[in-house]
Structures are given as C-alpha cells and as structure tokens.
Amino acid sequence: MNRTWKELEAYQPRVLKLLENSIRKKRLAHAYLFEGKKGTGKKETAFLLAKSFFCTDRETAEPCGDCSSCRRIESGNHPDLHVIEPEGLSIKKHQIQSLQEEFSKKGLESSKKFYMISHADKMTANAANSLLKFLEEPGADTIAVLTTSQVHSILDTIQSRCQVLPFSPLPSYIIRQELEKEGVIGYMAAAAAQMTNNLGDASELSRNDWFAEARALVIKLYEALTVRKEQAIVFIHTQWMPFFSDKDLQAQGLDLLLFLYKDLLSIQVGMEDAIIYIDMKESLKQEALQTGQQRITEKVLSILETKRRLHSNANPQLLMEQLVLALQEG
C-alpha cells in the first residue's frame, strides 16, 4: 500500500492518469469498478486513491504519506475507510447492511467516507441488490471502489452506476524489473516474467525449486538437440517425461523451450535486450549465426503445434519424440 502514483503509473498508465486528473480537478466519481486480472494493481490503486482522498496535507494528487490520515490508512485502521472481503466463498447481504449502517453515522474524522469491496463478483444476489440501493443514493463526500477479475459476473445495473476502469495485464518487462528489485537473479526473473502476467505468481515461481530445475532441464534438452543429437530421444525417456509428469507441467516445459528458440530469433533481428535466457547469450548468438531464420521459425512453429496437440488425446511421449525429430532436422 506504500506505492506512489508515479510508481503505479508504470503499471497502469491510462487508469492512473485518469484518476490523477480527477483528483486534481476535484471531479472524483462516487463509485468506481476496477476490473482486470489478478495481480494488475487494482487493490494498491484503491488504497492509494483512499490516501489521496483523505490526505490533509497533499498539494498535488500525490498523498503526503505523513499526515495522520495517510499513516492510519497505511496501518489499516482509518475509521472512515471500510474494506469488505468475501466471508468464505461469498460476500453476504449482512456485510453490505453493516456497511450501510456504518455510513449512516457521521464520519469520525471528517465528512468523508470511503469503502472498498474486494472480489465484488462474489456478492450473493441479495448482497448485490442491497449494494445497488446503496449506490443509487450516494452520500456527499463518499467514494466506493469495487474490484473484480470477473466483470461479467457483476450486475449490469451495478456497472452502470460505477465508472468502470479496466486494468491491463502487466507487461513482462515491468514484472522482470520488479523481480530483480526483490533480488531475484536476472535469468530467473526473465523466465518467470514470461510465464505469467501476475507479479505475485511470478515472484513465487522465480523462487520455486521446481521451476529452476525445469529451466535447467530445458537447457539440457536444447544442448542435446544441438550438440549431442543421438542423446535427445533417450533424454526425453529418462529425464523429460518423468519430470514433466502431467500435461500442465509438460505445457510449462514446452513454454520454456519455446522462449529459448524465440531468443534465437530475437538475436537474429537485433533485439538482444529481449532475450530471456540471458545466461546463455553467447552460445545462442553462435547458434543464431549458424542457423537460418526460416529454419528457426519452423522450429518455433513445431513447438507451438506440439503444445496445441498436447491437450488433445495424443500420447505426450510420442508427441515429444516427434518434436525432437522435428527440432533435429536441418
């Protein structure tokens, strides 16, 4: 909750610019619906908006961070900021009713009130109808923020009473930078950032021993394909299939292999800064010089086709054997 508008703008430039302008011009809406995938900064943005809304010492859109209101929001105990989370699997009617009761009272520190409903798509029908009535009669100096990753599950009548702000998936370079700030080694940060557009998931993945071993196995397969071709099929039987033991894991292995071949294309078109296997840069450059772009493109397409067929009824081991033969050609 301690990020600034400038930091979050790198994540969601359109959303943050719109909110900043609304704060400066004192034209904040009474209700917002932040919608987008998990890990796109919706909750952080809501708390930052609350800080700017309550801050008593800000001169621009940026909250001061030092006044009593900012500090109390940071510590999670501001009396006029109310956050509703699902109880178990859903948000229930009594939670919305309790919120309405709180808002019928005078603000404890000012006339301002702010409430946030996380995972608003998990409201029961009764809870959603109670909230709808609440939204129809907005109080002065009151802001509501609803967050959801399933906007299609929110009643149209609720959406129509909110300003809907879509949050885009995070770009991989942002995730990579954030992971490196957390101390993740560069090549692990680069790989994890390609596997998901969720910063939290990428952070967890980058520290996962299984993921590190999967990446190492992919490199071994690549080396077998390029240097020890007679060992590649044996490698699939003895190491690849036992490690990638189901279709979901096999799909992740194929993704990691795909990134490696895409790196060859990146090198060939002069985009070395984009490569993911940065610890293999020199050997990849040598391979890129020796192999034509058309041939590498064909290999990329072979991996994509194998991944597509993986979730059909095709035999995974047979698919991998066929892929090895395709990648060894040329």
Rank of each mutant, 00 (worst) to 15 (best):
Ser172Glu: 15
Cys162Trp: 00
Arg161Asn: 07
Gln100Lys: 15
Ala125Glu: 15
Ile174Glu: 04
Thr142Gly: 04
Ser104His: 12
Gln150Asp: 14
Pro171Trp: 15
Ile91Pro: 00
Ile91Cys: 02
Lys122Thr: 03
Gly88Asn: 14
Ile154Thr: 08
Glu101Thr: 04
Leu131Gln: 03
Gln100Gly: 09
Ser90Ala: 15
Pro171Asp: 15
Ile158Trp: 01
Ser168Thr: 10
Pro86Met: 12
Asn129Cys: 14
Leu165Phe: 12
Lys93Tyr: 09
Gln95Glu: 12
Ala140His: 13
Lys93Pro: 00
Val151Glu: 01
Pro169Met: 15
Ala128Leu: 05
Ile154Gly: 02
Leu108Met: 13
Leu170Asp: 00
Lys113Cys: 03
Ser149Arg: 03
Met123Ala: 11
Leu89Cys: 09
Leu146Ser: 01
Glu102Ala: 04
Thr124Asp: 08
Leu146Lys: 02
Gln100Asn: 10
Ala127Ile: 02
Thr147Tyr: 00
Met123Asp: 02
Cys162Leu: 12
Thr142Arg: 15
Leu132Val: 05
Ile158Asp: 03
Tyr115Leu: 08
Glu101Leu: 05
Gln150Phe: 09
Pro169Gln: 15
Ala120His: 00
Ala125Ile: 12
Pro86Ala: 15
Ile84Pro: 00
Ser110Gly: 10
Lys112Asn: 05
Ser90Arg: 07
Ser130Lys: 04
Pro166Met: 01
Asp141Thr: 06
Ser130Thr: 08
Pro166Arg: 02
Ser111Met: 09
Ser90Thr: 10
Glu101Ile: 03
Ala144Asp: 07
Leu135Ser: 10
Pro169Ile: 14
Pro138Gly: 13
Lys105Leu: 11
Leu135Pro: 01
His94Gln: 13
Lys113Asn: 06
Gly107Ser: 06
Pro171Val: 15
Ile96Met: 13
Met116Phe: 07
Tyr173Thr: 09
Ala128Ile: 03
Ile117Arg: 00
Glu136Val: 04
Lys93Phe: 10
Ser111Cys: 08
Gln97Val: 06
His94Val: 07
Ala128Met: 04
Val145Phe: 08
Ala140Thr: 11
Ser168Val: 11
Glu137Met: 07
Lys106Val: 08
Phe134Trp: 10
Lys93Ala: 10
Ala140Tyr: 09
Ala140Met: 12
Lys93Met: 11
Ser130Leu: 08
Phe103Thr: 02
Leu132Tyr: 14
Glu87Ser: 07
Ser153Ile: 03
Lys93Val: 09
Thr157Val: 07
Asp141Glu: 14
Glu136Ser: 10
Thr147Trp: 01
Asn129Leu: 15
